[in-house]
Amino acid sequence: MPVTEDENDGSVDAGRTEKLVMVAALGVIERGLLILVALMTLAATSVEVLSIIERRSVNLGDILLMFLYTEVMAMVAVFYTGKGLPFVYPIFIAITALARLIVLQGKDMDPQNIVLEASAILLLAIAAVVLLRFARR
């Protein structure tokens, strides 16, 4: 039997109202932060493109950095569209960041560190496959 306002002096309705206000406020904050992330990513992309134009050369590290920016934008888009699995995109970002680190510091890195980072990439890739495969069920 549901509790009515008469039986509980309105405290149940007040709790629901507070919950609705908090959910709405947190939703607005989340959307604002997502917009900020998208704008900051666009700004960082612009700075990187201008740097490439000034240098008049593109290297593999620059391309991987652009993939990182693209994946961040895709993650924001997934939150807005609801299509896709938002928790897989941070895994993709981590894989790309580790690959970029290996590419940029590969010659100067200890071979053991390269193997460890490559192992981390493999572990993340396996996690992404498992999440994508079993999340659809």
Rank of each mutant, 00 (worst) to 15 (best):
T4Q: 07
E5I: 08
E5S: 11
D6R: 12
D6A: 11
E7M: 13
N8E: 14
N8H: 15
N8Q: 09
G10I: 10
V12F: 15
V12D: 13
V12K: 05
D13S: 15
D13N: 11
D13Y: 14
A14L: 14
A14D: 10
A14Q: 14
R16C: 03
T17C: 05
E18C: 06
L20M: 09
M22Y: 05
V23Y: 00
A25P: 00
V28T: 05
V28W: 07
V28A: 11
V28H: 08
I29L: 13
I29K: 12
I29T: 11
R31W: 13
G32W: 08
L34A: 11
I35L: 15
I35Y: 14
L36S: 09
V37A: 14
V37T: 12
V37W: 02
A38C: 06
L39V: 07
T41K: 03
L42M: 11
A43Y: 10
A43G: 07
A44E: 10
A44T: 03
T45A: 06
S46A: 12
V47W: 03
V49E: 00
L50N: 02
R55M: 00
R56T: 02
L60A: 11
Y69R: 06
Y69C: 06
T70V: 13
T70E: 01
E71R: 04
E71S: 14
V76H: 02
V78S: 04
Y80H: 14
T81L: 07
T81Q: 05
L85W: 03
F87R: 13
F87W: 07
P90T: 11
I91R: 09
A94N: 13
A97I: 10
A97C: 10
A99K: 02
